[in-house]
């Protein structure tokens, strides 16, 4: 079975869900090995094994935390060489994509970013991507070298396939480029009580129509066990933090249910939510373009519709 390297996305050893999705996809292509950078591998090994990582390569060197991206590039490039891996899977995000790009360049390999699915094919992995604001589906494959692929969150449901992983500490020779960009301070993203935006089954988003106070959106989100999203207009107005922005320059989400209130539906917003399974829209303007995507739409004032929705959810549940 060919070895597939999966770069682990974690905070101090707490493994994030997209990594489990990568391991699940990697099992279609061969035998997954997890590449764990930084401290905390001990607490991660069990869950990595549960999702099918036969090996866990641990690179716990100070460079990993002190510098940006390039330590991961050195580690993955060298591990790809040592293991003769058949493919590399990384999470899609600024860090994952830049790491992938530089690794591919060094390996003389091809690169595919933002895959929403990966399946085995006659000439190596075949990827699926959503492009042009998610109006097109494209399948593609790498034609040169060891395929390097970054995968978006929610590409597949994580499925357990327990094994007891072999844990191997790996030494990496960090090149001068690894010291080039220093991390002066690092603030890990808060994982609040609500689900993560890109990982959630349900996302409830608010836009300019919310007019300042996002409590009305949060109440619906909590009633449904959902993550909170926001349009760029809402974020730019300072009503909600940027990490909640959905769209071209924010998160691209693909939940089972996307509920948008007070969002008009600009192409840049649609680019981030168009592939959601079910879309519900509340807007007082019947001509808002987002209604074109809606499975169910309510033309009305969100300050009346949403509180009534929350009330009704409570009533139906009790």
């Amino acid at each position: 079975m060919p070895e597939i390297l999966v770069l682990v996305d974690h905070t101090d050893g707490a493994v994030h869900k997209p990594t489990l999705e990568l391991l699940t996809l990697a099992r279609r292509l061969g035998e997954p090995s997890a590449v764990f950078l930084g401290p905390g591998a001990d607490s991660a090994t069990e869950v990595l094994g549960r999702y099918g990582a036969h090996k866990v390569y641990v690179v716990d060197a100070p460079e990993v935390g002190e510098h940006l991206v390039t330590p991961a590039v050195d580690a993955l490039t060298q591990l790809a060489g040592r293991t003769g891996a058949a493919a590399l899977l990384l999470p899609s995000g600024p860090d994952g994509k830049e790491t992938a790009a530089r690794v591919a360049l060094r390996l003389g390999s091809g690169l595919i970013t933002d895959a929403v699915d990966v399946v085995p094919g006659p000439d190596g992995p075949v990827t699926e991507q959503s492009v042009f604001a998610a109006t097109y589906q494209v399948t593609a494959h790498v034609t040169r070298g060891v395929p390097v692929i970054t995968v978006k969150p929610n590409a597949t449901a994580p499925e357990p396939a327990p094994v007891t992983p072999l844990v191997e500490k790996q030494d990496v020779a960090f090149g001068p480029a690894s010291a080039a960009v220093r991390v002066l301070a690092r603030t890990p993203r808060e994982r609040g009580d609500r689900p993560e935006l890109t990982e959630a089954d349900i996302v409830v988003s608010g836009g300019r129509g919310v007019n300042g106070d996002f409590t009305v959106i949060e109440r619906v989100a909590d009633a449904l066990g959902a993550a909170v999203g926001a349009s760029r207009a809402a974020v730019d107005s300072g009503w909600y933090p940027h990490r909640h922005q959905v769209g071209q320059t924010g998160a691209q989400v693909s939940p089972q249910l996307y509920l948008a209130a007070g969002i008009s539906g600009a192409i840049q917003h649609r680019a981030g939510m168009q592939t959601s399974k079910t879309i519900v829209v509340v807007n007082k303007d019947a001509d808002a373009p987002l209604f074109e995507l809606a499975d169910h739409g309510v033309v009305g004032d969100l300050f009346e519709v949403l509180p009534q929705l929350v009330e009704e959810i409570r009533r139906r549940r009790s």
Partner: peptide
């Protein structure tokens, strides 16, 4: 270093029911 195999327009979403809020939206 990569090749596109297929491109397909996503089927347009079928617009669902849009109701005007009459107090029970």
């Amino acid at each position: 270093r990569s090749a596109v195999d297929t491109t397909a327009r996503r089927p347009p979403r079928t617009k669902g029911e849009i109701v005007v809020d009459d107090g029970a939206g």
